[in-house]
């Protein structure tokens, strides 16, 4: 039986109060299994980013609960959530969001430094991932010296190098041209296949959706369809 990585029950997120109240998510139930390669899709304002933010504990819930690897995020304070994300969740942002004053190598090893991984192991893992994302030889460059696609590859390497249970990516290809975006998704899918790593990413690009093994469609804060594809 495949292990459940994320179990989200009855998720509701409301912004504002009274007449200005907006329901970004309404009673959403979602279960993600290990090895999933799921796309959260839907039009702008459907609640994709809010759902991803809640799944990684960045945003708070109005009601409901999220369990990641059996741990309820609702019970954790800010420090505990930071540590939990560090150990269990890898994040990839739309605009790459590398730390501009750190080199490629330093960006990738940043989380491992927080985890206090031994220097030799850090170097080995960084070297492996640089090869995997095709950036060997660029480890001493700063983000500003890389193209958008290369920066996003570094961001994926940073998210994966600490061996998290799940990678959450918020529109990872939105700032890339379709060819580069497709290559990036192929790379993520390859990691999913080879390393059995779980990916959830949001997108509204039909070409990207085609690559997902599972398609969760949101509309007005509700899941309107959840289909698995081969």
């Amino acid at each position: 039986m495949t292990e459940t990585v994320i179990a989200a029950k009855n998720l509701t997120r409301t912004f504002g109060e009274g007449e200005t109240e907006i329901h970004a998510l309404k009673n959403v139930d979602l279960e993600i299994k290990r090895g999933d390669f799921a796309a959260i899709v839907g039009p702008s304002g459907s609640g994709k980013t809010t759902l991803l933010n809640i799944l990684c504990g960045l945003d708070t819930l109005s009601s409901g609960d999220v369990q990641v690897s059996g741990n309820s995020l609702r019970q954790m304070n800010g420090s505990q959530l930071s540590r939990f994300r560090r150990e269990h969740i890898g994040l990839v942002f739309q605009a790459y969001n590398l730390i501009p004053v750190l080199t490629v190598l330093e960006n990738i090893e940043y989380v491992m430094l927080l985890q206090k991984v031994a220097a030799a192991e850090r170097k080995e893992r960084v070297r492996n991932f640089l090869v995997k994302v095709g950036l060997e030889g660029k480890e001493n460059r700063f983000p500003a010296e890389l193209s958008g696609g290369q920066q996003q590859r570094v961001a994926i390497a940073r998210a994966m190098v600490s061996h998290p249970d799940i990678i959450l990516a918020d529109e990872p290809t939105a700032n890339l041209d379709s060819e580069t975006g497709g290559q990036l998704l192929d790379m993520m899918k390859q990691f999913n296949h080879e390393l059995n790593m779980t990916f959830i990413f949001s997108t509204h690009d039909p070409h990207i959706m085609e690559r997902a093994k599972r398609l969760v469609t949101l509309s007005d804060g509700k899941i309107v369809s959840d289909e698995s594809r081969n």
Partner: peptide, 16 residues
């Protein structure tokens, strides 16, 4: 500020 948001998101504690 956004950068600090990223740093916190990827596992840096409030204290750090």
């Amino acid at each position: 500020l956004f950068e600090f948001g990223v740093i916190k998101s990827i596992g840096t504690t409030p204290w750090q």
